[in-house]
């Protein structure tokens, strides 16, 4: 599913990833941990096909990232710090635009909004009028609409209320059960460690620990530090 071998990626001239080795299988829920600036978000962007490899090799969803980034992009769903929503358009107009752009049936928009608990009264409201949490839910609905094979979630619980956080957890588990792989960068360890089937710790742009199972249940399980 994902195979990174000595991957180096630059942000400007700064090596945000400085030799990452990682193998992730189908259906895994991987928690990416690390301090601020460790390279977590960069790793997610690289796996989404948004960053160029400086050196090393990377295969995501069977495609070589050095030659076929466009092929990878269509098959991933990325929730980053930005929500990629147009302020002046309504909730439904935004998601219908992204569905059409992604060649996905627009009829999947309303079920996705319902799944994320976005009330029908908000469907025709301009995104600029939404709260940060509502906006985050709409952005997550946009990921659901794409039905990605690889979910890349950067701080997915950020800005959400308790119900929203529970929804994210449910979505992650559902996606993995359906065979998708989930990579999650998060500081909310209390929530995410129990979800994860594996925890990868990054520091200084390198993998410094790679544990099977969550960090809470590491005893007795595989460890590849």
């Amino acid at each position: 599913m994902i195979r990174l071998d000595a991957v180096v990626a630059l942000l400007g001239r700064f090596p945000a990833l400085a030799g990452v080795d990682l193998d992730i299988a189908d259906g895994e829920i991987v928690l990416i941990q690390g301090p601020n600036g460790a390279g977590k978000s960069t790793l997610l962007r690289l796996c989404a096909g948004l960053l160029r490899l400086e050196s090393g090799s990377a295969t995501v969803l069977g495609s070589d990232l050095s030659t076929s980034r466009a092929a990878v992009r269509r098959r991933v769903g990325l929730l980053g710090h930005d929500t990629a929503l147009y302020d002046e358009l309504s909730v439904v107009e935004n998601l219908e635009f992204w569905a059409a752009a992604s060649r996905v049936d627009r009829s999947s928009v309303l079920p996705a909004l319902a799944r994320l608990g976005v009330a029908p009264r908000l469907h025709d409201v301009a995104v600029s009028k939404l709260s940060a949490g509502q906006r985050r839910r709409v952005a997550l609905a946009g990921v659901v609409v794409r039905r990605p094979e690889l979910w890349l979630l950067d701080e997915p619980h950020a800005g959400l209320d308790q119900a929203g956080r529970d929804l994210v957890d449910d979505l992650v588990v559902e996606a993995a059960r359906a065979g998708a792989t989930v990579l999650m960068a998060s500081h909310e360890l209390d929530r995410t460690v129990d979800l994860a089937t594996r925890t990868v710790v990054i520091a200084g742009g390198m993998v410094v620990a790679d544990r099977l199972g969550s960090v809470h249940s590491e005893a007795g399980e595989g460890c590849a530090d």
């Binding site: 989404a48 948004l50 992009r73 269509r74 929500t83 990629a84 992204w98 752009a101 992604s102």
Partner: peptide, 13 residues
């Protein structure tokens, strides 16, 4: 403004 350029790339447009 809100990262839509990146989303356009991901959408495959």
């Amino acid at each position: 403004t809100d990262g839509a350029r990146r989303a356009l790339l991901l959408a495959g447009v």
